[in-house]
């Protein structure tokens, strides 16, 4: 564990806490893409298949349980909670996210570390996480102004993988034979997808104005 990876994990945890805070305090999921949340639930379930078979550390196990349970709880809230579900922007959240699932599944079958069920699922989850934010970014562009908590949620979610890139660079220089091309390339693509959001988020912060993404 290094400071970059710990900062990344904490930033990721903060993004989830901000989203839970928004849904719990406002009892609303307006501006939140259910499709992105479903993709994240798939990402965590397919990535943490080793939750019960390989024990890395208490921290690792606890964080995996937190990520899986929070992503499933958020999907349940938006789909089933009698108050929250009413504010879901169903007509705006129309990204065909199952196409992303299909494309990542094909890519994982072709490019993986080892051809085993667990490794292919792991590669699939890495690829899917890189594109999972797309439905959310599309929804933000369509829904015009973005409420503060939703903007902060997306900001921390994008920032966490940037810390992971620093972690991979650090590990590359500090450990022999450390190469994780699948994670690195996918992580760079993932962070790049946030580039325009980060730009408009910075502008809104600098001008102290509402976050507006151009349609």
């Amino acid at each position: 564990m290094n400071v970059f990876r710990f900062a990344g994990d904490m930033t990721h945890l903060i993004s989830i806490l901000v989203l839970l805070l928004k849904i719990y305090t406002t009892k609303s999921c307006s501006g939140i893409s259910l499709k992105t949340q479903e993709l994240y639930a798939v990402v965590f379930v397919t990535r943490y298949l080793d939750l019960v078979t390989d024990f890395i550390s208490v921290y690792n196990t606890v964080m995996k349980v937190v990520f899986i349970s929070s992503s499933l709880a958020i999907v349940w809230c938006i789909r089933r909670h009698k108050v929250v579900r009413r504010s879901y922007d169903k007509e705006l959240d129309t990204f065909r996210h199952w196409l992303l699932v299909g494309a990542c599944a094909v890519l994982a079958l072709v490019v993986h570390e080892k051809f085993s069920f667990q490794e292919v699922c792991w590669a699939f989850s890495i690829y899917l996480e890189a594109v999972a934010i797309l439905p959310q970014l599309v929804l933000l562009q369509r829904s015009g102004n973005v409420d503060n908590l939703t903007g902060q949620y997306v900001f921390f979610l994008g920032a966490y993988r940037a810390f992971y890139i620093l972690n991979w660079i650090y590990r590359y220089y500090s450990e022999q034979h450390f190469t994780r091309w699948i994670s690195c390339v996918s992580g760079i693509v993932q962070t790049a997808l946030y580039a325009d959001f980060f730009y408009y988020y910075f502008i809104s912060w600098k001008n102290n104005s509402k976050l507006q993404l151009p349609a």
Binding site: R5, I56, K64, F67, E113
Partner: peptide
Amino acid sequence: SSAAYIKDEL
């Protein structure tokens, strides 16, 4: 195929 590395990252 090469042994896949331990997935110690989240």
